[in-house]
Design a binder for these strands. Structure first.
Lengths: 218, 218
DNA sequence: ACCTGAACACCGTTCAAGT
DNA sequence: ACCTGAACACCGTTCAAGT
């Protein structure tokens, strides 16, 4: 009879377990009980490492932030910020529950703070004034978060289903929505369409807007 | 002994009650039981007008969309879209729980559909090609939703507290975050600072970007 | 030190019943 | 037709206990 050396519980193992549960079943599936099952432990064991569920949720948000590439202040600002935007969007797509969580979390974790600092450093080194950097920061995050909101609330990620939904809407409402019908037939339902491709287009426009801010100094 | 003519329950009264509860206490405070109390009724009465809580949440999202001014396709596109952005941001600020809800709702309600249609109509009438309108739409909503995410996750809306939090962060981490310190002292903690003011700056930049899209046709 | 069982005050929801 | 009470299977969390 050999020993099952189940490694001891840690705060980190709890957070990684919570991330796995949320990724698999969504935020609603993440309960202390389901998390305990995932960890192979009884529910109450969790409370020896975190004060309550809120602390787990705060930790989850910071985990997601930690997956986002930091821009390098030494690099060319446009390139660095662009990379950061791509990386942030990818992280939010991997963890579609994260946006809903961010709304309720008010205490930024270490990964969130590092990200703020690195981004500001990159902008300032890139020639943005303090005020321009503030404007730029708000615009960058608005775009990235907002795109994530749209992407996660799309009718089930896959493009094919997108077309299906568009077709259904068209059929149900017939001529009631001519412009939606137009964009559906001429754009959304065309082969190769993928809403995700919009990200690059908007990103370039946002980067152009940042350059305007940089030049005019605020 | 006079009669309390408590008007009969309706789906609409339920949704308005739910909106009131969510606005007052947040999404977590909205339970079938708390809603019933708000309506002066027993929990189970609610189930005669809605199938389940999910239907209430779907209804709430559409209520919020219904508060957003529709752009007029007859007006000048930039003016109309600008007004719509301002109105959308105001609605999302009145109902800070709405963004978190949008992420999980996949069936657009009537107000949401009307809004899509009116916006597309305005863009198309304003000279945007079908493809340019699609790009424009994604950019507009990304900016508005993303700004709302940031605004609602700010350390308690009020600017004064904003400064307080910034000061705390500075004191706690001392020299660890020089660029955050810089922006805090030189910008955020200055009298008159209000993160909400960033909205207009980003909005103008987004509108400029839309004009680029319109001109180049996609 | 690390984990557990039983219990409490909550949820959403079903079902059978009251007027 | 419109509302209710009791009950069920869930929650997060406390507290006292086990090894």
């Amino acid at each position: 009879m050999y020993e099952m050396t189940r490694e001891t519980l840690t705060r980190d193992r709890i957070l990684r377990g919570a991330l796995a549960v949320a990724d698999t079943g969504g935020l609603a599936a993440l309960t202390i009980r389901s998390l305990a099952t995932e960890l192979g432990v009884k529910p109450m064991a969790v409370y020896h490492y975190v004060a309550n569920k809120d602390e787990i949720l705060d930790g989850l948000v910071d985990q997601v932030f930690s997956e986002i590439d930091l821009p390098s202040p030494e690099g060319e600002w446009r390139e660095e910020i662009s990379r950061r935007m791509v990386s942030a969007r990818a992280a939010l797509r991997r963890h579609p529950w994260a946006i809903a969580l961010m709304e309720s979390r008010r205490t930024p974790g270490p990964a969130s703070l590092s990200r703020h600092e690195a981004t500001l450093a990159t902008l300032r080194q890139g020639g943005f004034s303090v005020v321009a950097a503030a404007h730029a920061y708000a615009l960058i995050d608005s775009y990235v978060y907002g795109f994530a909101v749209q992407e996660t609330s799309l009718p089930i990620g896959r493009p094919e289903e997108m077309g299906e939904v568009a077709r259904e809407i068209m059929e149900t409402f017939e001529g009631a929505y001519p412009y939606m019908t137009e964009i559906a037939t001429e754009h959304v339902m065309q082969p190769g369409y993928d809403f995700g491709d919009e990200f690059e287009i908007g990103r370039e426009l946002v980067l152009d807007a940042l350059e305007v801010l940089r030049r005019r100094g605020g």
